[in-house]
Amino acid sequence: MGDSVPAPDKPTIPITVDFSGGLEMLFSNQKRHSLTIPATDSNEKPATIAFLIDHLCKNLMTDPRSEMFVLDKHIRPGILVLINDADWELEGEEAYELQPKDNILFVSTLHGG
C-alpha cells in the first residue's frame, strides 16, 4: 500500500491488484495490493491497463527480474490478466480504461508445481 504517491493536485483512482501463480514473488511476496494510481497518464489520457503495467514495474515491483512480468513493454505471454474476473481479451486488453474499485488480477501460467 501507498507504494506510489501521486502529486496531491492530480486526480487518482483506487484499485486493487492481485498477483498469483508465482507472480507474487516479484511483488514483495504479497498477493493483494490496494493501490491509488493517477487517473491519467503523462499525456493526460485516462489510465489504462498498459499504463498500470508500466506503473507496477516502476513503483511496486521489488524483484529486479522484470522480464518475468513484462517482455518488450508488453505483458509476458503466458500471464493471464483478469479485469474484475473477466478475461482482459473481453475488455479491450491494454486499452481498457481503469475505473475506481476495479480489481485487476495477474496470474501466471508459467510456473510449475
Binding site: S20, L80, L82, V107, H111, G112, G113
Partner: peptide, 28 residues
Amino acid sequence: YEKEIVLYAHHKKLDYFSTECIYSPEAF
C-alpha cells in the same frame, strides 16, 4: 489448454501452489 486449467482453478477457487525449483530458477 494451460490457460483454461489456470482459469478453472481460479474460478473453482482450487487450492494450488506455484513454485520453481530452487536448483533451476531459469527452467521455465
